[in-house]
Design a protein around this nucleic acid. Sequence first.
DNA 1: TAAAGTACTTTATAATATAAACTAATTTAT
DNA 2: ATAAATTAGTTTATATTATAAAGTACTTTA
Lengths: 96, 96
Amino acid sequence: MFKELDPLLHSQLRLAVISLLIGVKEAEFNFIKEKTESSSGNLSVQLQKLKEAGYIEISKGFKDNFPLTTCKITDKGIKAFEVYVKAIKQYIQVKK
Amino acid sequence: MFKELDPLLHSQLRLAVISLLIGVKEAEFNFIKEKTESSSGNLSVQLQKLKEAGYIEISKGFKDNFPLTTCKITDKGIKAFEVYVKAIKQYIQVKK
DNA sequence: TAAAGTACTTTATAATATAAACTAATTTAT
DNA sequence: ATAAATTAGTTTATATTATAAAGTACTTTA
């Protein structure tokens, strides 16, 4: 009846992050932070979880001498998002 | 950018319950339990939360001598569900 | 009348999310 | 030169939430 909702994506912040990355393909830590209106701490934790799941890649470098964290969605992340979208639609009864 | 997702509805089981009740308007505890494939304990707790939020009404009676719990969505619950659906659509980019 | 079953609720534990505090460095002001 | 403020995060502690296990209160069946 109701499909499982991937717990990794069924989290407001992580879902927002993935939703953002689906659009832009690559984004900086602060860009994501602003768009999602999250705290640095919370975002840091959730990005790690998405990385551990293999849904995003995180690369660390520097920009104007400051550390810069950049995130990119992976194929696995895209696939997981698609599965999640199909599942949640069952719950919200989106008729195609 | 991203709308708040009502934490009361952003829970797999509670969302499934509300999604069910939107359709049938009234349902028995076991019907909900079967459709959502949840445990009695978890369902009991989540129904109480939905009740406390005023999203559903719970009425208790008897059927064939056994206790019978029946649930019904309230106007507030319907409204909250509609708001949730609008919000989550932003995340999953459902184009109308 | 004892064992098994129905229909839950309560409580305890595990998992999750969030906020606060901390690290490490850079820039700016004194 | 150096202290204070800022940037860009991470780590840790706490609060919240979800879930599973145990418990309550019966009823039915053997």
